[in-house]
Write a protein that binds this DNA or RNA. Sequence first.
DNA 1: GTCTATAAGTCGATAGAC
DNA 2: GTCTATCGACTTATAGAC
Lengths: 197, 197
Amino acid sequence: MTPLNDHQLDQLRDERKEQIKKAALKVFACRGLIGTKMSMIAQEAGISQGLSYRYYSSKDELFIALVQDAMEETAKAFAAFGLMKGSPLEKIKEFTINMLDESNRHSFMLIQQVQTSDEVPDKAKNIVQQYPTSSLIEQMTPIFKEGQEKGEFSKGDPAELLMLYFSVISGLMLLPHGLDGVNLIHHVDNLMKILKE
Amino acid sequence: MTPLNDHQLDQLRDERKEQIKKAALKVFACRGLIGTKMSMIAQEAGISQGLSYRYYSSKDELFIALVQDAMEETAKAFAAFGLMKGSPLEKIKEFTINMLDESNRHSFMLIQQVQTSDEVPDKAKNIVQQYPTSSLIEQMTPIFKEGQEKGEFSKGDPAELLMLYFSVISGLMLLPHGLDGVNLIHHVDNLMKILKE
DNA sequence: GTCTATAAGTCGATAGAC
DNA sequence: GTCTATCGACTTATAGAC
């Protein structure tokens, strides 16, 4: 067996860090920062409780790293929205399906916790505040206006329509998956009726 | 000052218990069972931490009492639905506004916690299971069928339409109030478009 | 690198003063 | 009836064996 060089060791370490983050996101998203014990994350990742601290120096640090990742993912999802093809309705539909996907849902639940709980580290709050929800949402305004001009969407203040749409999507994202086994993706067409006249 | 008789003393005690429950519902709903410290409830109720235990012998007992109340309230809200006046659409609209009311939202968030967390007392789980969500929801089926027959609602499996409606409402109920200041009540008419053709 | 054992701190619950 | 002080259990984070 050839000994591993520094680069390979670093890579191995990064892989383990990713393994811990993946386990932690699942548990933090469902149970919150305080409701999650380091032992739960360790168990989910298949390692001992003490070992976690060789990769993240504290529970808070791990939580903050996850929040950072989640915000970057979310910002990317909104940015990608501007580049989508098709009619306004088709764009919103694709965006909606993307948002309701499981991995996005966990990230979103984490961010929601940071925004609503006052027991998360200040550093986590600061990260989330760097990407104001309003500016994220406002990236969608042009598509809504276009949808109204083309007669695909109902008339009225586009900001209000956008806000209602976003509230509904946010609510669905917070729903524990499989509430009574509804396949939400299957119903996206029905959901889109909120936007139409 | 006339000394109070037994009945009056009991009544005073009950009032204090209600005061504690009201404070506890607010905190439990937002932070969950584990995320809530008895000291938070005591502070919200304006009493000392130790005094809470003169009225509820444990944090779990207090939580269970709240779950019991919440389930009874919820069951009542669904039962009242059958007695409402007006067209199917008007009934659903009234029901929706009722559900999105703050006091109902907190009860619903509590029940959702019992259903999704596995760290709540068994007794709480048992109470919630006594009122199966499915049977609660199914009380609305006749109205949906009627709405479809009258052409007010979109065609297709009424159970699926009902499920979509209920998922959306559930999601909105779980939303921390005032997410970016949307007045949801004001948008109920738009929401109802999900049901229409 | 990974685990087990333990020290320090936190919170639920109780005891005892007023 | 209410509060303050404290005990015991549990959790985070570290120390030390392998």
